[in-house]
Amino acid sequence: MTTTFKVIVNGQHQLAVDPSQGTLLEAIEAAGIESHYHCRNGFCGACRTQLIEGQVNYINEPLAFIRPGDCLPCCCVPASNLKIEHR
């Protein structure tokens, strides 16, 4: 049985994301939303996204500083339903 979480992006897109199927960044891209990234490896911070509501799990350890209220979608998956701003 897989769990999917509801992820609301930029207040206008609603995604159903299965955390076993890839990163949050990949889910954003699969939904056709413009994504922001460089390294896709957790160290550059270019994918920095506001985490308005919910929790994420890091599947790879990020080296970029994560300011409170932010997440790095290139290396995390949802751990609950989420509201994020990825602009």
């Binding site: 460089h38 390294c39 160290f43 550059c44 911070g45 270019a46 080296l63 970029a64 500083f65 300011r67």
Partner: peptide
């Protein structure tokens, strides 16, 4: 460019700390 992104990560870390 890959190295520079890592260097940047370190200066951002220092400033944020």
């Amino acid at each position: 460019a890959r190295d520079e992104n890592l260097h940047l990560s370190s200066t951002q870390q220092i400033i944020n700390l």
